[in-house]
């Protein structure tokens, strides 16, 4: 697990106030919504806010893959890594 992935897992637990859950319990490539972690549509909004605050991640409406990015910790990490300037 990369540092970024584990940072995202901690952010998810903290931002969504998930109980009885440690970062290691979140499977990096498992779906976050629906089955899997079982997050819902309101969680998606809250997570969007948290990602923006923590990583400065701006989500773009013209991005056809918006929902795909939120699929798993892995896909979020990939998105953040590609959006962040080099060396950060």
């Amino acid at each position: 697990m990369t540092e970024l992935e584990s940072a995202i897992k901690e952010l998810i637990i903290e931002a969504l106030e998930l109980e009885d859950l440690a970062p290691d319990d979140i499977v990096t490539d498992a779906p976050l919504f629906g089955e899997g972690l079982g997050l819902d549509s309101i969680d998606a909004l809250e997570l969007g806010i948290a990602l923006k605050k923590r990583f400065g991640l701006e989500l773009r409406s013209d991005d056809p893959d918006l929902k795909q990015h939120f699929r798993s910790v892995e896909s979020l990490a990939r998105l953040i890594a590609t959006r962040q300037p080099q060396g950060v």
């Binding site: 009885d20 079982g38 819902d40 549509s41």
Partner: peptide, 21 residues
């Protein structure tokens, strides 16, 4: 709790499911 959430998800929207047990 996860098992009971899945049980409830049959009737209730995901937003309503209990988060703390």
């Amino acid at each position: 709790g996860d098992n009971l959430r899945r049980h409830l998800a049959h009737w209730f929207d995901a937003v309503l499911l209990p988060r703390r047990w």
